[in-house]
Design a protein around this nucleic acid. Structure first.
Lengths: 168, 168
DNA sequence: TTTAATTTTCAGAAAAGATTGAAAATTCAG
DNA sequence: CTGAATTTTCAATCTTTTCTGAAAATTAAA
């Protein structure tokens, strides 16, 4: 397989994977591109390489900066902004996991807790089953969430490292 | 909070969470509805409750059956099909995790492996960085995948249980 | 069989989500 | 400052995904 072919497939597949897991395709592809680039790239370079508009490129980069998995890098004598990806798989995987856990899972945890605690005492069969399932889900997600926090927030990914060593 | 209010919020939130993680909203909501229902429900009941079309309800149910987290149940003296959700959080969470791992992550693992093994020897800086990142990603996902398989496939969710007990 | 009930399919409609591109805002060298 | 370079914003457009509803297929009671 030629480099260009492998590269194309990689970027394409990374974008598809993103879509399937709720990450915008362009964003995933920009990360892929930056990940395999040895030098920092400009917005223009990214636009050209991925054939996307300036607006799209800019938004995607912002999002990646926001997630903390892409950094700005200024180049002496050039006014343009350059961007470089976090290259350490462990680091960026944990950051993505953490961001998504905090932003998307935590609100659900809060709702489950709220429903568990504040719903009127169950009387009918429907109400009892509802209470039961929400409670179980609450306990379960609580535990998973707690594990996730440990894994994602332990410095240096030490927790994930330990896990993999122990179980994988 | 009233039961009806809690129920509505729960179903709504579950749908939203699904969307964010690449699961169709209707599918997630049908699961939510079945999950909290003490009896099996018919397609018509689901349509009415969630205000969705017959086609949508039917497709959603098929998908859930396909994932193995909803079962058919026949009711004596009624020709209609009834459906009931897998109620054990552990069971269905592991099944969903497993199905998605196999269908969406495994192809990526295969591609990474393929690229790693079959790409022409790297010569330029670009090519070297590409090879390096793909290799790292390959190792990393291999390990994560192996852990995931253990967690998802150990009977009775014993592995996840152990993990939670140890680390959460 | 026949036929009425039920389920499935799928073309087209609607909604959601992604992308563009040009105007506005910002930045900074001179 | 000035103005050219660069970045950001966002309404309009395009694409993809989801959903509908009615026709076709299937099922099973009579």
């Amino acid at each position: 397989m030629k480099y260009s072919e492998g590269k194309e497939k990689f970027i394409e597949t990374w974008g598809t994977l993103g879509s399937q897991w709720g990450v915008n395709k362009s964003i995933a592809q920009v990360q892929a591109l930056l990940l395999i680039s040895p030098q920092p790239l400009t917005t223009d370079h990214i636009m050209e390489e991925l054939k996307i508009s300036r607006g799209n490129a800019n938004m995607s980069i912002r999002q990646l900066l926001d997630w903390g998995i892409v950094y700005k890098k200024s180049v002496a004598g050039d006014r343009k902004e350059y961007f470089i990806a976090e290259k350490d798989v462990w680091k960026w995987a944990l950051k993505i996991g953490n961001v998504r856990k905090q932003r998307e899972l935590n609100p659900v945890l809060d709702l489950l807790k709220d429903i568990s605690e504040n719903t009127d005492k169950a009387k009918t069969a429907e109400e009892k089953e509802f209470a039961k399932q929400v409670k179980e889900l609450n306990v379960f997600t609580q535990q998973l969430g707690s594990l996730a926090d440990k894994v994602f927030l332990t410095p240096g990914g030490a927790m994930l490292f330990k896990l993999l060593k122990m179980f994988a």
